[in-house]
Amino acid sequence: MGSPTAKRKQRSPIQRVIRWSPWHYRFWREIARWCYEQSLHNPAVVAADSGFPAHRQLLQSYQQIRKETLEIALSGRLPANHEIMQQQRTLYEFDRKVWGMLPLRGYGYDYPANQALIPSLRSFLQHHPDVVSAAVSLFPPGKVLRPHKGPFKGVWRYHLPLYVEHFGDGRSSCELMIDGQNYYLQEGEGFLWDDTFMHSAINRSSQPRVVLLFDVFRKDQPIWLIGMSWIFLWVAQIWQHVQNMRQRAGLQ
């Protein structure tokens, strides 16, 4: 996947203990991940029609969604992902290339001003509360997303590419490696997967790539996990409110 242009900081044993102690979110994140992994057994990539049937409505409105979204995404005004969420800063520090992100909904917490910029998506989100997160992602040329795992197995991750360069032979600039396998996403084709599997991404083109990212609440969870998932979402909503995320997440 290419080597980073900047080395990651080496942390002392004391710093590592602090980062993985009960007073840090990483401690609870790993406990929650373990609970989900004991009960949910699925492949890394799943059929969108089965895990997220409503994605067909998105595809039916694809051209309008694409037009409205690209007017915003390619304006050069998207906030930086790591400035919205400090927890994402290591993904920026890996290569120092800014990953643009416009949140529309975050774990059930709406961003009304951002949604108003893309009316076709706002209408879809209003009718689909099971889409607990939605965002416009702008991956700059040459950006490398280091291998990592998502924190929450209670959702499926859905990608809908809007602006992608095609290299031929099925390859594209929207390149993902998930659980050791490469996938090349194409414009207008939805892709559903479980981002708690190890994954990374790269844009090998000279132009940005724009993708819609959704998190879709999983309906195949046992009842006790559904309760745990809603608690997770509730805490995430409170955290975003306390952090005044709406102010930081607006267009620049």
Rank of each mutant, 00 (worst) to 15 (best):
residue 1 M to V: 11
residue 3 S to Q: 11
residue 4 P to M: 12
residue 5 T to S: 13
residue 6 A to V: 08
residue 9 K to M: 05
residue 13 P to W: 14
residue 20 W to F: 13
residue 21 S to A: 15
residue 26 R to N: 13
residue 29 R to F: 08
residue 41 H to K: 14
residue 50 S to R: 08
residue 52 F to Y: 15
residue 52 F to R: 04
residue 54 A to Y: 07
residue 54 A to E: 14
residue 55 H to C: 13
residue 56 R to F: 01
residue 58 L to F: 15
residue 60 Q to R: 12
residue 61 S to C: 07
residue 61 S to D: 11
residue 66 R to Y: 00
residue 66 R to E: 02
residue 66 R to G: 00
residue 67 K to V: 01
residue 68 E to I: 04
residue 68 E to D: 05
residue 68 E to Q: 15
residue 69 T to Y: 05
residue 69 T to D: 04
residue 71 E to W: 00
residue 73 A to T: 02
residue 74 L to F: 03
residue 75 S to Y: 03
residue 76 G to P: 08
residue 76 G to F: 06
residue 78 L to M: 04
residue 79 P to D: 08
residue 82 H to I: 00
residue 84 I to C: 06
residue 86 Q to G: 00
residue 90 T to L: 01
residue 90 T to C: 00
residue 91 L to A: 06
residue 92 Y to E: 03
residue 93 E to M: 06
residue 93 E to D: 15
residue 96 R to P: 01
residue 98 V to E: 10
residue 101 M to K: 11
residue 104 L to S: 06
residue 104 L to C: 06
residue 106 G to A: 08
residue 110 D to T: 08
residue 111 Y to E: 01
residue 116 A to T: 04
residue 117 L to E: 03
residue 118 I to H: 05
residue 120 S to C: 07
residue 120 S to H: 07
residue 121 L to K: 02
residue 122 R to Q: 15
residue 123 S to P: 00
residue 130 D to Q: 14
residue 134 A to Y: 10
residue 135 A to Y: 03
residue 136 V to H: 06
residue 137 S to Y: 03
residue 139 F to D: 03
residue 139 F to H: 11
residue 144 V to I: 14
residue 144 V to N: 08
residue 149 K to G: 00
residue 149 K to V: 05
residue 152 F to G: 02
residue 156 W to K: 00
residue 156 W to D: 01
residue 158 Y to F: 10
residue 158 Y to M: 12
residue 159 H to Y: 14
residue 159 H to D: 11
residue 162 L to P: 10
residue 163 Y to R: 08
residue 166 H to C: 10
residue 167 F to Y: 15
residue 167 F to Q: 14
residue 170 G to N: 06
residue 172 S to Q: 04
residue 175 E to Q: 11
residue 177 M to S: 03
residue 177 M to C: 10
residue 178 I to K: 06
residue 183 Y to I: 05
residue 184 Y to R: 07
residue 184 Y to W: 15
residue 192 L to I: 15
residue 193 W to F: 15
residue 194 D to W: 12
residue 195 D to A: 04
residue 196 T to C: 11
residue 196 T to W: 12
residue 200 S to G: 06
residue 202 I to N: 12
residue 205 S to D: 09
residue 206 S to Q: 13
residue 209 R to Q: 07
residue 209 R to V: 07
residue 210 V to F: 03
residue 211 V to L: 09
residue 213 L to G: 01
residue 214 F to M: 12
residue 217 F to D: 09
residue 218 R to Q: 11
residue 219 K to M: 10
residue 220 D to L: 09
residue 226 I to G: 00
residue 228 M to L: 15
residue 230 W to L: 11
residue 235 V to R: 15
residue 236 A to L: 08
residue 247 Q to N: 12
residue 248 R to T: 07
